[in-house]
Amino acid sequence: MKKKQFIKATTGGTALLLAAATLAACGSAPDKGSSSGSDEPTTDYLPCMVSDAGGFDDHSFNQLGYEGLEQAKDELGADWKTVESNSENDYKPNIDSLVAAGCNTIVTVGFALSAATVEAAKANPDIDFVLIDDAADNDFNGKVDAPNIKPLLYNTAQAAFLAGYAAADYSKTGVVGTYGGQPYPTVTIFMDGYKQGVDYYDQENDANVKVVGFEGGDKGAFTGGFEANEKATTTAKSILDQDADVIMPVGGPIYQGALTAIKDSGKDIALIGVDADFYETDPDTQPYVLTSVLKNMKQSVYETILAAGKGDFDPTAYVGTLENDGVGIAPFHNFEDKVSPDLQGKLDDVKQGIIDGSIPVKSYLD
């Protein structure tokens, strides 16, 4: 990731001093970057982005959105503004700061920003909003909260199904696990798809691999947030203590708690990443990561901003699937020689079955 300096939100309500008094409120000032290859922008179009509490350097969800915005603004020759959030208290003031800064399109990263995004979109119908991972009450039949919001959604249950199948095939103990940050649909969609994949493996291979940490719905192991804190580590340890030798943490930085638990265990345990390919985004995971469940957020954000910058903003909801390459799973990387030789071929068959509908995968996006 090309690094830049982000201005963190101030949760206590004290803002950084800015020339524009309208931005000197709680939350933080947007950070402005210049277009690649030029000191001056070649367009007046100004795309902007607000992170959720994970921050743009989370090696996952926010980072992918940031990279998509960066790629689009470079191609457009535009300036940009980004602002990070430290907590949910920052979402509304951070969005408001970008409205005041004159942004043409504002991308809000994460379902937690949905309410604040809808409020801002209704109050500012001339600004285009892009909401990642929440439908903003778009029922896909014409009913929408605000006609200037484009939801970017990802049916990760399909990709997680493949990861669950792979985990079950790889497991030596016959136990695999998962846990999440909070039981939001955009979290449990991974866990549910993962469990369905394990169940399908058992059905097709006359096996009895067990999933711990998730029973379905909101019943499972959750840390209560999305921070890489002690609770993330202890929750992961509770999964490993049940003899799981594959674990999939769902919730941005909480995977770091699983990584700590794996290292402390001294056991041969595999990690499954989510959102991004952890092998690529966080080299510290390379000895442990079996595969990752991917959201192609970078591409969908890039395409959306590029179109908006050219005057072709389309508020129609986007849903990433296996068929349109909006979701998928990463290569096995260092585990290539550790998995069954025929596993990839089986996964290819399962993927095709999901695409053609012969293998059903349930998710809230249905």
Rank of each mutant, 00 (worst) to 15 (best):
K4H: 12
Q5V: 11
G12C: 12
G13A: 07
A15P: 11
L17I: 10
L17W: 10
D31L: 12
K32Y: 10
S36C: 15
S36W: 08
T42E: 14
Y45L: 08
M49S: 14
V50D: 06
G54Y: 02
G54R: 13
G55D: 03
G55Q: 05
H59V: 03
H59G: 09
S60E: 06
S60P: 07
F61D: 05
N62H: 01
Q63Y: 02
Y66K: 10
L69P: 06
Q71K: 15
K73S: 15
D74T: 08
G77S: 05
A78N: 02
S87I: 02
N89A: 15
S97A: 15
A101M: 03
C103E: 03
V107K: 05
S114N: 13
N124K: 04
P125M: 05
D128I: 01
F129R: 08
I132H: 07
D134W: 00
D134L: 07
N138M: 06
D139A: 13
F140R: 14
D145K: 11
P151T: 09
Y154I: 01
N155D: 13
N155S: 08
T156F: 05
G164Y: 05
Y165L: 00
D169P: 04
D169H: 06
K172E: 12
V176G: 09
T186M: 04
F190I: 02
K195R: 11
V198W: 09
Y200W: 04
Y201Q: 09
N205R: 14
A207R: 07
A207F: 03
E215Q: 08
E215V: 01
F222P: 02
E227A: 12
A228N: 04
T235P: 02
K237I: 00
D243T: 12
D245F: 11
I247V: 14
Q256P: 00
G257Y: 09
A258Q: 02
A258V: 12
T260P: 08
K267A: 07
I269E: 04
I269V: 15
D277Q: 12
F278P: 00
E280L: 15
T281W: 02
D282C: 00
P283D: 06
P287H: 00
T291P: 10
L294I: 11
Q299C: 01
V301Q: 07
I305E: 05
I305F: 14
L306N: 13
V319M: 08
I329S: 04
A330W: 05
P331F: 11
P331E: 13
F332E: 01
F332A: 01
F332D: 03
N334G: 05
D337P: 02
S340F: 00
S340P: 00
P341Y: 01
D342W: 04
L343R: 02
D349T: 14
S358Y: 00
P360V: 00
V361P: 06
L365R: 05
